[in-house]
């Protein structure tokens, strides 16, 4: 997918390949509900009764429309940016706002088994040397929430002594050497110049080889579209100068986002001022999501 059809834009002199531009354009339309992020949790909970599983998401027709008739993206030069994300796990309270916002913003399947971002809970019981981990697909959490479309951690550790516990938000790491891109037979998934790994869902054949290849379980398959899905840091938002939806709604500032080309951006400061780690460094994927305060048990 290194299409050579680059043509300098007369106005901004940018060098985004034309095919990419079309692709960026439809992403812009992906965001039909950028304004509805606040109160996300409530919206999902209450609308679930009326509209079965969708809440404020795009339905499939709207999605198809945004694919076939992409809107224009404002002038944006992907050579000027190097996006990155930081996660300060010490701050995370496991409220799952990020996850709910993401589900709505990006029309992720409204169930407990397909996520672009999710939150894991690590708990060391007293005297134990290993952590017990659970997340949204855990049957007890689903049962506790009372629905597959509502997301809450249950209170299972109420009556036991806990030594230490913390939450770890997860998402696609937009790897520098993405194994998903390596294995994609069509080139439908590719690494953008400004960092994110994107999927052209009009080109993906749905073989799911990339799902197998991602070491972080960041990819999921959308059965009704027949293509794969994963986090793209809300590419339609960041190209407009907005933060990704999850960063926007996080009430504790756990998620930090910004441009590494700008030394004063939040992410540059975060990386400079903290000891940061990446997940599974031994995989050689060189993630672009940097964690502060993780633990030996975090996978």
């Amino acid at each position: 997918m290194t299409t050579p059809d680059k043509k300098p834009d007369t106005k901004t002199n940018e060098t985004v390949p034309l095919s990419r531009r079309r692709f960026l354009e439809f992403l812009g339309k992906g965001a039909v509900c950028t304004g509805t992020l606040a109160g996300a949790g409530r919206a999902i909970g209450s609308s679930e009764v009326r509209h079965a599983k969708r809440a404020f998401q795009q339905n499939d027709e709207q999605y198809a429309e945004s694919m076939n008739n992409p809107p224009k993206v404002p002038d944006y030069n992907w050579n000027d940016h190097q996006w990155a994300m930081g996660v300060d796990t010490d701050r995370c309270i496991g409220c799952l706002r990020c996850m709910e916002a993401c589900k709505m913003e990006n029309s992720v399947q409204m169930d407990a088994f397909h996520f672009r971002t999710w939150v894991e809970r690590y708990v060391y019981l007293e005297g134990s040397n290993t952590a017990i981990v659970d997340s949204q697909s855990d049957p007890n959490n689903i049962e506790n929430a009372g629905s597959e479309t509502r997301f809450r951690f249950d209170n299972r550790y109420k009556n036991v002594k806990v030594d230490k516990a913390f939450f770890v938000p997860k998402l696609c790491n937009q790897c520098e050497h993405p194994s998903c891109v390596q294995v994609c037979p069509t080139g439908a998934t590719f690494k953008a110049k400004d960092g994110p790994v994107l999927i052209d869902t009009t080109y993906c054949i749905g073989c799911q080889y990339c799902v197998q290849a991602c070491p972080y379980g960041a990819r999921s398959f959308n059965e009704s579209r027949g293509t794969v899905d994963k986090c793209n840091w809300c590419y339609h938002r960041i190209t407009k100068g907005l933060n990704p939806a999850c960063v926007e709604v996080c009430p504790t500032g756990t998620r930090i986002f910004g441009d590494r080309n700008d030394p004063e951006s939040p992410i540059s400061l975060f990386i400079r001022n903290n000891h940061v780690q990446v997940l599974k460094p031994e995989m050689g994927n060189a993630p672009n999501v940097f964690y502060k305060g993780t633990d030996k048990e975090v996978v």
């Binding site: 997918m1 891109v181 390596q182 294995v183 994609c184 037979p185 069509t186 080139g187 439908a188 080109y203 993906c204 054949i205 749905g206 073989c207 799911q208 080889y209 398959f221 959308n222 059965e223 579209r225 027949g226 293509t227 794969v228």
Partner: peptide
């Protein structure tokens, strides 16, 4: 393989624009 693909009608994408780093291409 064809039955498995989410978008079987696009199967030829892998032949028209093979991405050679992929074993499947």
């Amino acid at each position: 393989l064809l039955f498995h693909l989410g978008q079987p009608t696009r199967a030829f994408n892998a032949l028209i624009t093979p991405h050679w780093t992929s074993a499947m291409a």
